[in-house]
Simulated scan of single mutants.
Amino acid sequence: MRRRTMARGRAPTVKDVAEHAGVSPGVVSRVVNANGSVSERTRERVLASIKALDYRPHSAARELRTRTTNTIGLVLADVANPFFAHLAEHVVRHAAEVGLGVLLTTTQEDPAMELRSIELLMQKRVRGVIAAPGTGNAAAWRHMRDLGIDLTFVDRVIDRIPGIDVVGMDNESAAHAATTALLERGHRRIALVSGPSTTSTGHERIDGYRRALDEHDVAADPALVAELAFQRAGVENAVRAMAGLDEPPTALIVGNTAVSAHVVRYLQECGVRLPEDLSVVVFHDAEWTTLMTPQITVVRHQLDDLARTAVEMLHSRMNSDEPLRRREIRLDSELVIRSSLAPPRKRRALLNT
Results as ranks from 00 to 15, higher is better:
residue 151 L to V: 04
residue 78 D to M: 03
residue 329 I to S: 09
residue 206 I to G: 01
residue 40 E to N: 11
residue 196 P to M: 10
residue 304 D to L: 02
residue 220 A to T: 12
residue 32 V to D: 07
residue 305 D to Q: 13
residue 66 T to K: 13
residue 327 R to M: 10
residue 247 E to H: 11
residue 165 D to S: 13
residue 262 H to A: 15
residue 195 G to V: 06
residue 335 L to N: 02
residue 44 E to R: 15
residue 142 R to K: 14
residue 75 V to Q: 01
residue 188 R to N: 12
residue 338 R to D: 07
residue 97 E to R: 13
residue 229 A to M: 09
residue 334 E to R: 09
residue 123 Q to I: 02
residue 120 L to V: 05
residue 126 V to D: 04
residue 204 E to G: 01
residue 9 G to V: 12
residue 241 A to I: 03
residue 157 V to K: 12
residue 181 A to F: 02
residue 145 R to D: 03
residue 114 E to V: 03
residue 273 R to A: 13
residue 54 D to N: 14
residue 271 G to M: 07
residue 339 S to N: 15
residue 54 D to C: 07
residue 332 D to M: 08
residue 32 V to N: 04
residue 329 I to T: 11
residue 40 E to D: 15
residue 131 A to I: 08
residue 332 D to V: 10
residue 296 I to S: 00
residue 188 R to L: 11
residue 29 S to P: 06
residue 210 R to T: 08
residue 319 N to E: 12
residue 96 A to K: 14
residue 166 V to A: 08
residue 309 T to W: 04
residue 334 E to H: 13
residue 125 R to Y: 02
residue 174 A to F: 05
residue 205 R to N: 00
residue 96 A to T: 11
residue 295 Q to E: 15
residue 173 S to D: 13
residue 298 V to M: 09
residue 302 Q to L: 13
residue 319 N to C: 04
residue 244 G to F: 04
residue 200 S to V: 02
residue 332 D to N: 09
residue 323 P to M: 08
residue 147 L to I: 00
residue 140 A to C: 08
residue 198 T to S: 15
residue 300 R to A: 15
residue 29 S to L: 03
residue 20 H to Y: 14
residue 299 V to L: 12
residue 277 D to L: 03
residue 290 T to P: 05
residue 335 L to G: 02
residue 330 R to T: 11
residue 218 V to M: 08
residue 295 Q to G: 12
residue 33 N to C: 11
residue 145 R to W: 06
